[in-house]
Every structure is written in C-alpha cells, then in structure tokens.
Amino acid sequence: MSAVFARLIASRLFWPIVMLLVLFAINLIAFPGFFAITIKDGHLFGSLIDILRNGAPTLIIAVGMTLVIATRGIDLSVGAVCAISGAVACSIILGSPDPANGATVAVAVTVALAISLVLGVWNGFLVAVLGIQPIIATLILMTAGRGMAMLITEGQILTVNSPPFKAMGSGFWFGVPIAVIIAAVVFAVAALLTRRTALGMLIESVGINPEASRQAGVRARGLLFAVYTFCAFCAAIAGLILTANQTAADANNTGLFLELDAILAVVIGGTSLAGGRYSLAGTLVGALVIQTLVTTVYTVGIPPIATMVFKAAVVAAVCLLQSPTTNQALAGFRRRLALRAGKGIAAS
C-alpha cells in the first residue's frame, strides 16, 4: 500500500489534482451549494457548469499551446489571434443584411478560422524556416495582432445581434453549454491524433532533440508548421466563443492575457517548457485549476484585482512540488518505503 502511495505522489498529475480538490473544498466551505447542479428549461446550471463553460476558451488554447511547448516552443500571439478572430466574425455579421441568418454566421466563422490558419502558418514560417526564436517570432504577431484587430473594427467595439452567433458562447445543446462541447471536441481530436497515432511521439522527438529527430528522418519543419497552425486555430475558436459570449468584438480586451493563462495551465499540468514529453490530461487539470481559482476568488469575496496574485501563488506551489529537487526527495522517500516493505516481508 505504501509503495502504491509513493508512486501516486510521484505522478505529475498528483499535485495539480490535489490543488484542484483543495480549491473545490474552499468553495464548498464558502458556498455549501457549490456542487449543486440544477436543470432549468432543460439546461444544466450550477457553479461546476460555470467553471466548465468559462474555462472552455482557456482549455482550447491550452491544448494547442501544449503541442507547441512540446516542440520546445511558445506562442505568445494566441490572445491577439482571439481578438482578430472575433473582430473578423463580427465585421462580417454586421456587414450582412441579415445578421440572424445561420448561413451568415457560418460564413463569418469560416472566414475567421481561415484567417487564423494563415496567422498560424506565418508563425510556423518564422520559427521553422527563418529559425527565429519562438518567443520572438510570436511576439511579433502578439504586438501587431492587436493593431490588426483595431484596424478591422476601426477602433470601435462592434456589437452584434445574432442569436446563432451568440449561441456559440452562451447557448446550450442537449442541456450542455455549447462552449463546453466545443472544448471537449477539440480536446478529444487532439488526444486521438497525438496518442492514437505516431504524431505525438514525433512531436516529442522534435522537442527532445530536433537535430537527432531530423537525422532519424522526422520532418521537423512540417511538424512545427502543423503545431503553430493548430495553436492559432485553437485560439481562433476560443476568440469566437469569447466574442459570442459578449456579443461584441473588443479588439483591446478580447483574449487579453489569455496566453498567460494557457501557459500556466500547461505548466501546472506537468508539461515541461524545455520541450519533449507532454500531458494533455495534465493540461485539462491545469485549465480547471486556473478557472476554479478565478471562481474561488469571487466566491470567498477576495477583490478581483488580486486574482493574478493568487494565480502566481498556485503556479509557484505546483511548480515547486514538481521541481527536480522535490522529485528527488520523493524518489528517496519511495526507496525507503520499498526497503521497509522488503524488510517486513523478510521478517514475516
């Protein structure tokens, strides 16, 4: 039993899950009905549903960010891509004679996603072809992207009145928020493509040693193009959800600092920024920790401006628990437990 517990502690998911359970406990103490889920008009409502719905954009971006980080890269432009995606969609809807038409919304969403693919290819080109450091390459679009969104919206907040578009952010399908369903689909597709095929192993090989993987015949350049394009695609989906939820395109605030939340979710989930092995399951837990932390701040009455401080504290705690020093200490503890277990068996 002690050996099983030691292996459990050594898991990268152990401390993030513990942190999530602690946050749940704090919310339950502050609000006894925290776990209650009710059905109104055939739709699910409750604090847990709110966490899933509000955390969906972060999870979607974090999935793409996980694959980028696994290649030893980073994408700081996802927040700007969110703003561009929302601005493009709202501009097309407002320019249509019938904003409530489903076909109009479909065209707006398709164009926004197509532009995000172009932006992702641009990031991939800078990193894979020109060899620019990922943090610098994506910083270019992070800076210019907000300006592009401002040009699209002409510096205004574009408010749209389109029920089909609004449904992406606040609608329900079979009682479940559509945003949650979209996030689940993105997560499932990424998991299937990377864990049920050789794609995940190839991505990890590029992150561990790009030169060795190239000599082994892995097309590292194509993989880099793929992960940066997919990350931008995920950011565009998240941007559409955020914009639809607000029913307005705000070039200044849509997706603001969302790249930081996505990176925090990936790090909390145990994926190393040095590249290589990654965990989509860990990213899921990390995104839930981030959103639950935000909910906790509001539940216990802490001023919202202190949210970033608490995020930093949680990330620092999880990273310290997952640090090499802590892992070595846990490994020594596991060896001692195994030794004691062996002595107990010998004595019996």
Results as ranks from 00 to 15, higher is better:
G276K: 01
N253S: 14
Y228C: 12
L256I: 03
V285Y: 00
F257Y: 11
A251V: 01
I237Q: 12
G222F: 01
A226G: 01
A184Q: 06
V206T: 12
V180G: 13
F233A: 12
L273A: 13
A248N: 04
R277H: 11
C234G: 05
V186Y: 05
T194C: 14
V218M: 00
Q215C: 08
A238V: 02
R196T: 09
G175R: 11
L199N: 12
A232N: 08
A281E: 12
G282E: 09
Y228M: 15
L224G: 03
L202V: 00
R221L: 08
A244H: 02
L199D: 11
S279W: 01
T254I: 15
G275D: 13
I203T: 11
I263Y: 07
N252W: 01
L264C: 15
A184I: 10
C234T: 08
L264R: 10
V176E: 09
S213G: 00
I203N: 13
S205H: 10
P177V: 03
R277L: 09
V176C: 08
S205W: 06
R221M: 07
E259K: 03
L193F: 14
G286E: 11
A236I: 04
N209V: 03
I182Y: 12
I208D: 15
G217L: 03
F187M: 14
L273Y: 07
I182W: 00
V267W: 06
L256Y: 01
A248F: 03
C234M: 06
G276L: 03
L273T: 15
V267D: 02
A198H: 08
Q246D: 05
T197Q: 02
Y228R: 04
V185W: 03
A248G: 13
G239S: 09
A287W: 07
I203S: 08
I268Y: 11
G282L: 09
Q246K: 09
I181V: 15
V206H: 05
V266C: 10
S205T: 11
G175P: 05
L193K: 01
T254L: 08
R196I: 01
F233K: 05
T247I: 00
T247L: 01
V189K: 03
R195S: 14
Q215P: 00
I268L: 15
G200D: 09
A265L: 06
S279M: 09
F225R: 02
A226H: 00
A179W: 04
N252A: 15
C231G: 09
I263L: 15
S205L: 14
A262S: 11
L193V: 12
A235V: 09
G222A: 10
F174C: 11
I263W: 06
L258Y: 12
A248D: 10
L240A: 07
L240R: 09
L223H: 04
N253I: 07
I178W: 06
G286A: 05
A191L: 11
M201I: 04
L256Q: 03
C231H: 07
G217S: 06
T229V: 04
A236F: 05
Q215K: 10
L280Y: 04
C231R: 04
V180S: 12
S213D: 02
P210G: 02
A287C: 05
T247A: 14
G286N: 07
L192A: 15
V266D: 08
L224H: 06
G255C: 05
F187V: 13
V218S: 01
G222T: 07
